[in-house]
């Protein structure tokens, strides 16, 4: 079964994506690692920064093995620069 995962975009990721949200289609169950790969395939401009991007699932940092479900809130987190 395919699921649609909207990913929130911020800062350089939002600029490169040209949108605050990018939707990625995944097989269920999917992982953050699959999202990263599909994101770069869908938005080639992400290739140079892909290795530096973190992802958050339901407001917690996730690793590539973290599972994502259709109900997950997923965000793409480029290196942070608050303060």
């Amino acid at each position: 079964m395919k699921i649609q995962i909207p990913i929130k975009m911020f800062a350089i990721a939002q600029q490169l994506a040209g949108s605050p949200n990018i939707t990625i289609e995944l097989d269920e169950p999917g992982t953050v690692g699959q999202l990263r790969t599909k994101l770069v395939a869908q938005v080639p401009a992400f290739a140079p920064i892909a290795a530096h991007l973190l992802f958050a699932v339901d407001s917690e940092y996730a690793d590539d093995a973290t599972l994502v479900a259709e109900t997950s809130e997923v965000a793409c987190i480029p290196p942070v620069s608050g303060g």
């Binding site: 800062a11 480029p78 942070v80 620069s81 608050g82």
Partner: peptide, 26 residues
Amino acid sequence: LKQEVPIWKKENWADGTSEWVHPGLA
């Protein structure tokens, strides 16, 4: 805060360009 809180700054330079600040990105 500077390491883990998802907040980002954009520099607006005097020469009219602007740039997101992302430590570790070229």
